[in-house]
Design a protein around this nucleic acid. Structure first.
Length: 793
DNA sequence: CGAGAATAGTTTTTT
DNA sequence: ACTATTCTCG
């Protein structure tokens, strides 16, 4: 192996990698080899400097980024990448709290509440503090509390700073909410940070332990950290000050999640001895794309000037195009994709579907694109959208598991105590909540107090329930206790089975009229996710599994599939790159979004978001918009995005020469009044003049990361005849991305089977598969089920 | 208490 | 358009 491990870096990157004994701020423009630098810096620390991997922590924005970093390191140098601590801030905090949280009074079996759980508890808190959830939207309270926590304000701290009546109300709810959280032995996402900070700040022994362990602390995507995260970083590096942060202020797009761009803008002030290094050479995009990006971002006021340059050539001009409505916009995108992937290619180059991404501001925009993909037979993968772990039946099973892990979890209890129906209705629950509140205990605990079997004398007298209700409640409690006992003897997957059976939930689903079977199958999929944990001891398995359910996001499971295009939000696209990028919805009201349009700093963030999208493109960029767009039933015309007018005309392709027919391509300009669409343009279903082929994949696959060929990339027979199919037929007879009726597939749990049908379901696909070996016919969700094609009809 | 109908709010982005 | 909550009746 090369003794100079940094040989592959440019001088700036190299300097950054070798700066290991002081605070370091790396301003890394898009495509400047940031990830590469971080990876090499760690490799250098371990291999050349001799730092134990055990002593290095790197915090990334998503779990996916963390996995990638570990994988890259594992292949770059020979050491156990698992010895490194790499993860998200939330994951890191969850970990140290699990170990040492007791020092600040946190139950080691704490559960993590997600957004929906939080909202439930906020509502309860509002009811209990007599604040009408109809007059004041609970969402608003939740976000106010969340942002307070991000600023490290606990309930008491917040109360001190209230100045308005509204804040006064929030303060009351915050206080009650916190009590209930504590009562439930639960924390929310913000608590993970807040409590980790409290622990490191207030428990010197604990703090010292971590400070001494981690002699190097690195943070990626630093522009998107919030106040709490930054404070934690400072605490963690107090002694040695080896804090290395990497980011790009121009890509700060999470202020709505309380990220504070000032963290990166003022890092130099907080650490006067910090070295600041700017990486400005871009290895990703063409000069044209880079120029456009530069002009696009420059109107922003809050920024650190930087000049991006590249050795890459000028490339091709950016294409700006308008469709009549979102449907036509989608059609234009897909027709162009057809041309790019046709054997003849575009300008002599042929792209693979996996080279192409379509990005949009809001998830709802994916719909028109999906429908288009179905009609044209273009396989796609969609990131995000309907989330697996948020499906009702999955959340219910999770709630049962959480109760087994921690029976004080009130939100979980409320969720499933009457699911399936056990005759425990609203009155009973209200009464139980009141009792719990009076006694200052959790609801589960409250059931024990009314239980005839082990109640102490005197408490029985307070039992406000009917005999029937009392029995229903204690039966439920006994169910959970029995399951907990049982859990000591079996593994996690078997535990889920027992939960399903003994709770009656399986039967409930089986007998439920609609989608019962699908929902059962979702539970089966859920079990297969749990199967990763069967080898651990139960307590640990349960905790780790529940934690991953809470902290894992959709982008984490995104795979590189060479034979599908990618549909993705601009936010999720951060950190990714594609040879070809389409951004759709380049309209005022969407990008910038309506909700930000009258706040200048919000518009700046929208501009950064647009910048992020533009700079994902390596070779080709298309900026698409629709003249009018459907919105909640109605349709409204939209002006072209104001951002379009910041891109110089010289970088834009003016006329579409491949198609001599009537044009819709227009020069983007805010001042130009929108002209009416030419007649027949939208109504006339012009045939796309291209042919889909592609049994074989183009050899000019320019992706940098190697994708594993081992799993689930269907040889793409999807691209059938050139003509769009009628909508209906397309949806039912054609498979989703790469799968069609008759394909032989393999599933991790069920083994081999044959696809009977495949149809869209939400943003996903539901495939019906007949499995061999007695597993029968199952309906699975393509997005989650790991299906692998083993043969075709 | 529970099931089904009516109604309101929702969706910008997600750890 | 779609879900979640509230209302009404058995």
């Amino acid at each position: 192996m090369n003794s100079d491990i940094l040989a592959g870096l440019n001088p700036r990157q190299r300097e950054a990698a070798e700066t290991i004994d002081r605070p370091l701020l790396i301003i890394a423009g898009p495509g400047s080899g940031k990830t590469r630098l971080i990876t090499y810096r760690i490799a250098y620390l371990v291999r050349t400097v001799g730092v134990s991997p055990h002593r290095i922590a790197a915090v990334t924005f998503t779990n996916k980024a963390a996995h990638e970093m570990k994988n890259r390191l594992a292949s770059l140098v020979r050491f156990d990448a698992n010895a490194l601590t790499v993860g998200t801030f939330h994951g890191f905090c969850a970990k140290i709290l699990r170990i040492d949280g007791e020092s600040i009074g946190l139950d080691p079996n704490y559960v993590i509440y997600d957004d929906a759980d939080q909202l439930d508890l906020i509502k309860r808190s509002m009811r209990e503090t007599e604040i009408d959830p109809k007059r004041y939207p609970p969402r608003g309270f939740l976000s106010a509390i969340s942002s307070a926590k991000s600023l490290l304000l606990d309930a008491a701290g917040y109360a001190l700073g209230t100045t308005t009546y509204y804040e006064e109300l929030i303060s009351r709810v915050y206080e009650r909410y916190d009590q209930l959280m504590a009562q439930s032995a639960a924390v929310d996402f913000d608590d993970l940070l807040l409590k980790a900070h409290q622990m490191l700040d207030g428990q010197p022994d604990v703090a010292r332990k971590y400070q001494e362990r981690y002699v190097h602390f690195m943070i990626d995507e630093f522009q998107d950290t919030n106040t709490a995260q930054y404070a934690i970083s400072r605490l963690m590096t107090q002694g040695h000050r080896n804090l290395c942060v990497v980011g790009d202020p121009d890509q700060s797009i999470y202020s709505w999640r309380n990220a504070d761009i000032r963290n990166i803008l003022s890092f130099g002030d907080d650490f006067p001895d910090a070295k600041v290094i700017a990486l400005e050479q871009n290895y990703r995009s063409t000069q044209t794309i880079l120029d456009a990006a530069g002009k696009l971002i420059s109107p922003n006021s809050q920024r650190v000037e930087k000049e991006l340059f590249t050795d890459n050539g000028k490339g091709v001009p950016i294409v700006v195009e308008e469709g009549y409505d979102e449907e036509e916009e989608a059609r234009k995108v897909l027709v162009e994709i057809g041309a790019l992937t046709a054997p003849a290619g575009k300008d002599g180059k042929r792209y693979a579907l996996g080279d192409i991404a379509v990005m949009y501001r809001v998830n709802a925009q994916s719909r028109a694109l999906e429908e288009g993909c179905l009609r044209y037979g273009i396989p796609y993968q969609i990131v995000g959208g309907q989330k697996f772990y948020q499906r009702q039946e999955v959340k219910d099973v999770v709630a049962y598991l959480r109760l087994i892990a921690n029976s004080d979890d009130d939100v979980g209890l409320n969720r499933v105590i009457n699911q399936p129906a056990r005759g425990i209705g609203r009155r009973t629950l209200d009464e139980l909540a009141r009792l719990a509140r009076d006694l200052d205990i959790s609801m589960f605990e409250a059931i024990s107090r009314i239980s005839p079997s082990d109640s102490q004398a005197g408490i029985m007298a307070t039992n406000p329930f009917t005999t029937r209700a009392t029995k229903a409640l204690t039966d439920f409690r006994d169910l959970i206790l029995a399951l907990r006992e049982r859990s000591k003897e079996i593994n996690l997957v078997d535990l889920i089975d027992e939960v399903m059976e003994r709770s009656g939930y399986a039967r409930f689903l089986r007998e439920s009229t609609d989608r019962g079977e699908d929902r059962l199958d979702n539970v089966t999929e859920f079990k297969s996710a749990a199967s990763d944990y069967v080898n651990l001891e139960m307590r640990e398995a349960l905790t780790a599994f529940l934690e991953s359910v809470s902290l894992v996001s959709d982008i984490d499971s995104m795979e590189e599939k060479p034979e599908t295009i990618t549909l993705i939000t601009l936010h999720q696209a951060k950190g990714l790159e594609f040879p070809v990028v389409f951004i759709v919805g380049m309209e005022d009201g969407l990008l910038p979004h309506q909700r930000s349009i009258d706040d200048p700093s919000a518009v700046e963030e929208e501009r950064r978001l647009c910048y992020v999208g533009v700079t994902r493109a390596k070779e080709r960029l298309y900026l698409m918009r629709a003249f009018r767009r459907g919105f909640r039933g109605g349709m409204g015309p939209n002006a072209p995005s104001r951002f379009l007018s910041d891109i110089p005309r010289s970088l834009i392709k003016q006329a579409e020469d491949s198609e001599p027919a009537e044009k819709t391509t227009t020069r983007p300009s805010r001042s130009t009044p929108r002209r009416r669409e030419q007649d027949g343009q939208s109504a006339g279903r012009r045939r796309p003049g291209f042919e889909f082929t592609s049994k074989t994949k183009t050899p000019s696959d320019s992706r940098s990361r190697e994708s594993k060929p081992d799993r689930g990339v269907p040889p793409n027979k999807a691209q059938g005849p050139p003509r769009p199919r009628p909508k209906r037929a397309a949806a039912s007879s054609r498979g989703g991305p790469g799968f069609s009726t008759g394909d032989k597939v393999r599933h991790g749990t069920f083994g081999e089977g044959i696809i009977l049908s495949c149809e869209p379901s939400g943003s996903d696909y539901q495939v019906t598969v007949a499995f061999k070996e007695g597993h029968g016919v199952k309906r699975l969700l393509l997005g989650f089920a790991k299906l692998e094609i083993v043969g075709q009809e």
